[in-house]
């Protein structure tokens, strides 16, 4: 019993994974998986963003750049080879992780506002390069044909009758669920550990942290690499999900706004915040896109961000905890 309490979180992760798998086996409407995928992807991106933004206090405006580079790494791999989706995800994670390592070195000279602007600049530079790179479709974009009857480790993954999943959307949904759970687990592990405590000290006062023995650069490099890598992994699944990608889609500023707004709305100081924000905002957006219009949905997103930074600086969780304290 105490063992169960000790591993409450891990058990929760497992349950969530099993639940996601069960959902794919119930023959639900495809839209469930389409929308579910989007919400999960948001949750993963927001979680990745928060590792750097929430724990270490470095605001990344370049989420779209990391996501886009993950997507385009996957596209380049698809064009070059018959790499499986898992290989695409790993490659996307590695390339975006390296880009993350790069912005980690930015932090040596750039703090606060300057760092944020530099990440935005980086995203646009990457987008411009992709725009001019014809091999991956350039400005015109590129269509992706999902592999027919893909196998992983000898198991037929997607097949109408014989596969583990009966269609591709179900498979991608499950994959995204697994990736999201992994990200949340990583975020929580960082938060509860020495790395998280060091990052918090950096966020509060970087110079004092350094003088108190915290190897600030090393911790920041680890963090930017992990955060960027996770965003790249989320991006690598994108081409298979959309089947058509062009730079404006892959590098959409909306990702930057969402990845920032979700943790801020949920609460940036704990792993639960980004999830909460993603589920709230993600669901609202998915519903709004269908029922109202996609522009109005973006307007809601912008308004919520502004309202929350003004009225609830510590997000939903912060507001909730303060209320309970009283």
């Amino acid at each position: 019993m105490s063992l169960m309490r000790q591993y409450k979180f891990e058990i929760g992760c497992l349950v969530a994974l099993v639940l996601a798998f069960t959902m794919t086996q119930m023959g639900l409407n495809r839209f469930v998986f389409f929308a579910g995928f989007a919400v999960l992807q948001y949750a993963m991106i927001a979680t990745a963003w928060n590792i750097l933004g929430g724990y270490a206090g470095y605001i990344n405006f370049g989420t779209a750049g990391f996501l886009g580079i993950g997507s385009y790494t996957a596209i380049a791999l698809i064009n070059y080879s018959d790499a499986s989706i898992v290989e695409q995800i790993i490659a996307g994670g590695v390339v975006a992780g390296l880009l993350g390592l790069g912005i980690g070195y930015f932090t040596l000279r750039l703090k606060g506002v300057y760092f944020a602007i530099a990440t935005l600049a980086l995203a646009i530079v990457v987008e411009t390069i992709v725009n001019n790179w014809d091999f991956v479709g350039g400005a015109a974009g590129v269509s992706i044909l999902p592999a027919r009857n893909p196998e992983l480790l000898g198991v037929l993954v997607v097949h109408k009758k014989l596969g583990v999943f009966s269609n591709y959307k179900e498979f991608l949904f499950f994959l995204m669920a697994a990736l999201t759970i992994m990200s949340v687990w990583i975020a929580r592990t960082i938060e509860k550990g020495k790395l998280g405590r060091g990052l918090n000290a950096i966020k509060d006062n970087e110079e004092a942290a350094e003088c108190m023995g915290v190897p600030t650069l090393k911790l920041k490099l680890i963090t930017t690499t992990i955060s960027g890598g996770l965003m790249g992994m989320a991006g690598a699944v994108f081409p298979s999900y959309l089947t058509f990608v062009d730079p404006p889609t892959a590098f959409n500023l909306e990702f930057a706004v969402n990845s920032l707004a979700m943790p801020m709305i949920g609460g940036t100081f704990t792993w639960l915040g980004p999830i909460l924000g993603a589920v709230l905002l993600g669901t609202v957006q998915q519903v709004a896109i269908v029922t109202i219009s996609s522009e109005l949905n973006l307007l809601i997103l912008g308004l919520l961000l502004v309202i929350f930074v003004i009225a609830a600086p510590h997000g939903f969780l912060g507001w909730f905890m303060k209320k309970n304290k009283r």
């Binding site: 405590r197 060091g198 918090n200 000290a201 966020k203 509060d204 006062n205 110079e207 004092a208 942290a209 108190m212 023995g213 915290v214 100081f269």
Partner: peptide
């Protein structure tokens, strides 16, 4: 320059 999001004892734990 205290670590302002932490309690006093957490400040020393760093």
């Amino acid at each position: 320059r205290p670590f302002h999001s932490m309690t006093v004892i957490q400040n020393l734990q760093i």
